[in-house]
Structure formats: structure tokens, C-alpha cells
């Protein structure tokens, strides 16, 4: 299993290398370290979101409301900043995390206590959170000139050669990696995705664990809300509309099984990078938006086909061993 995961991630990494190579033939500067750093920075928000989605998908659930959460939280922090420019940015980030946490906890509560399938719950809150954005903003936009310079420049500040945004992404990746490999909750998330019944017998509270993963994806949505608004310097009801599908696509390309239980932090990050490269680089080399969509779509299907083959292979291993025994 571990070898196979490695195999899959190596595969994805190779795919990304090939993609970069192909783009370099048309746009020679693309593989320059400076440009690759730029691509990483451009993909940071998607990577963070994909990690938040990953823990949800691992538990056989899905969070469709992440992009709406991002939009709502982004609007809240942008309005706070416009009204009280004195609030320091780190505090604003904490507020974004908390607002996101509340929205995530609502999803988690409905899934846990009312036992509603997560796809239904988050399909509802997808609309509700975006509607709530309209309510708090009255439909108005928060523009760049209403935001404080700190608000806009915080993530752009360079630190040890990388923008703060990239550092935040690296920090989130590291935290998720540690959480998934070194903590009890990470292990429980994995176990209930693989075998929920056995997990119940092992004394893991499946409902509570699901509640926690929705809290995590909510916090991530909130964090991404601030990052997104300060990056694109406009807050409106339309922000990140439909972006939940990109997040899920990044997870699927990264080898995270929609059926739960299978997936890794590395996979989610690489899946996001793959999508990020396609959407950032292809316009530069004059490939039409239609082809971009076709390439992303093909990547998703290819990833699912490879995953399905991987799972079948597991089954055969069992049989072969059983016959040998």
C-alpha cells in the first residue's frame, strides 16, 4: 500500500515534470526556478483548500461549501478591514480561521447529529453561505481602495526569498503532514475512511471525527478567504463561484479516492500543482481556454482510471497470497 502510494505520487510528479517540459518547449523561461516559485505561489491557495477537502473526502464525506465559506469569510474580513484598518493582520487571520470554523462546525454538526449525508448538507450550505455573504455585504463590493495597504501587502512580503503566501502554504502542508502521520485524529480519519464499521468496534467515534474534519475544512476555507481576497483585492458575492469543483478536482487528480480511505497530503498538493500549472501556464503559451478545460478534465478521468486500477490490483494481491498459502 505504502509503496503503491509512493508509486502514484511519483507518477504524478513525473506527469508534472513532463507538463513543465512540454510548456518549456513553447515558453523557454517556464522551467526557471524563479518562474516555478511563482507557479507555486499562484497555486498556494488551491493547495491549502485541497488539503482541507482531502481530510473530508478521506472520511467518505465531501464539503461542497468550501468556496462559499471562502467567499463569506473573505467578505467579513474585508469589511472588518475597511471599517477598522487598525486591526493587525495576524488578528484578522485568526478571525478568518474562527469564522471559517463556525461555518465548518455547522456542516459538521448537521452531518454528525442529524445524520444527513454530507453531500446534501454542504449542497445546502453552499447556497446559504453565499446568500449570507449577500446579506452581510448588502450586495456591495469591497474594493482595493477600501482595503488597508497591510491587508493587501501582508501575503506579498518576501521572507527568505519566498512570499508570505508561499510560506503559509508550506506551513499548512507541514501541519497536515504531521497531523495525518503523527496524530491520533489523523489515524482515526484514515481508519474510518477505510473501514467505518471496524472503527466503531475499535472505539473510534465516527460521528465526532466527521465533525472534526468539517471543522478543519471550515477553518481552511476561512483562511483561504482572507488569502484570496487580499490576493485578488476585491470582495464580492461572486468570489470563487464554482471553485469547489476545482478543489475536488485537485484532490481527485492527487489520487484521493472519492470512496474514502485512500489519499495522502503529497497527493493533494501535487494534484493542486498540476491544476495550477495547467491554468496558469497554458494561457501564456496561447492554448485556448477550451483546451485547458479539456486537459484538466482528461487529467481527472485519467487519475480516476489509475486509482481504480490501483484498487483492483490490491484485490489481486490478496487472492494470490491466499492461493499461495
Amino acid at each position: 500500500m505504502k509503496n503503491f502510494l509512493k508509486y502514484r505520487e511519483t507518477w504524478l510528479l513525473a506527469g508534472i515534470a513532463v507538463l513543465i517540459g512540454l510548456i518549456s518547449t513553447r515558453f523557454p523561461g517556464f522551467a526557471d526556478p524563479a518562474n516555478l516559485r511563482q507557479v507555486f505561489n499562484d497555486t498556494s491557495i488551491l493547495m491549502i483548500l485541497a488539503l482541507g477537502q482531502m481530510v473530508v473526502i478521506l472520511t467518505r464525506s465531501i464539503d461542497l461549501s468550501m468556496a462559499s465559506n471562502l467567499c463569506f469569510t473573505g467578505m467579513v474580513v474585508a469589511m472588518l478591514n475597511a471599517a477598522h484598518p487598525a486591526i493587525p493582520i495576524p488578528l484578522l487571520i485568526v478571525i478568518a480561521l474562527l469564522v471559517g470554523l463556525v461555518l465548518g462546525a455547522i456542516n459538521g454538526f448537521l452531518v454528525w447529529r442529524l445524520n444527513i449525508p454530507s453531500i446534501v448538507v454542504t449542497l445546502g450550505t453552499l447556497t446559504i453561505y453565499r446568500g449570507a455573504t449577500f446579506v452581510v455585504s448588502g450586495g456591495a463590493w469591497v474594493n482595493a481602495d477600501q482595503m488597508s495597504p497591510d491587508f493587501i501587502n501582508f501575503q506579498r512580503a518576501a521572507f527568505l526569498g519566498l512570499p508570505v503566501l508561499s510560506w503559509i502554504a508550506l506551513l499548512v502542508i507541514a501541519l497536515f503532514f504531521l497531523a495525518m502521520t503523527r496524530t491520533q485524529i489523523g489515524r482515526s480519519i484514515h481508519a474510518i475512511g477505510v473501514n467505518p464499521t471496524a472503527s466503531v468496534y475499535a472505539g473510534i467515534d465516527v460521528g465526532r471525527t466527521k465533525f472534526i474534519v468539517f471543522c478543519i475544512s471550515g477553518m481552511i476555507g476561512g483562511l483561504a478567504g482572507y488569502l484570496w481576497i487580499s490576493r485578488y483585492v476585491i470582495a464580492s458575492v461572486e468570489v470563487a463561484n464554482g471553485y469547489e469543483l476545482n478543489i475536488i478536482a485537485a484532490c481527485v487528480i492527487g489520487g484521493i479516492s472519492i470512496a474514502g480511505g485512500i489519499g495522502s497530503v503529497g497527493g493533494a498538493v501535487l494534484g493542486a500543482l498540476f491544476l495550477g500549472i495547467i491554468s496558469n501556464a497554458l494561457p501564456v503559451i496561447n492554448i485556448s481556454p477550451f483546451w485547458q478545460m479539456a486537459i484538466s478534465g482528461s487529467a481527472i478521468i485519467l487519475a480516476v482510471v489509475l486509482n481504480a486500477r490501483g484498487e483492483r490490483r490490491q484485490g489481486r494481491i490478496i487472492l494470490r497470497k491466499a492461493e499461495a498459502a
Binding site: 503523527r182 481508519a191 477505510v194 471496524a198
Partner: peptide, 30 residues
């Protein structure tokens, strides 16, 4: 269905119901 968690390694299967004891404030001690 109810016993082994196929896809997890042996040691993680064994420790699954004992995680509270083998970890310290939620951090696993491998």
C-alpha cells in the same frame, strides 16, 4: 467488515483501539 482495516499496515491495525494509550496529547508515538 468489522475487524481488520484493510489498507492500513499491521501495526496500525493492532494499535487502533489503544491509540489513547500509545499517544500523548493526541500525538502518536510510533
Amino acid at each position: 467488515k468489522q475487524g481488520v482495516v484493510i489498507g492500513l499496515p499491521i501495526f496500525q491495525n493492532v494499535s487502533l483501539p489503544s491509540l489513547a494509550r500509545t499517544s500523548k496529547s493526541g500525538v502518536l508515538r510510533l
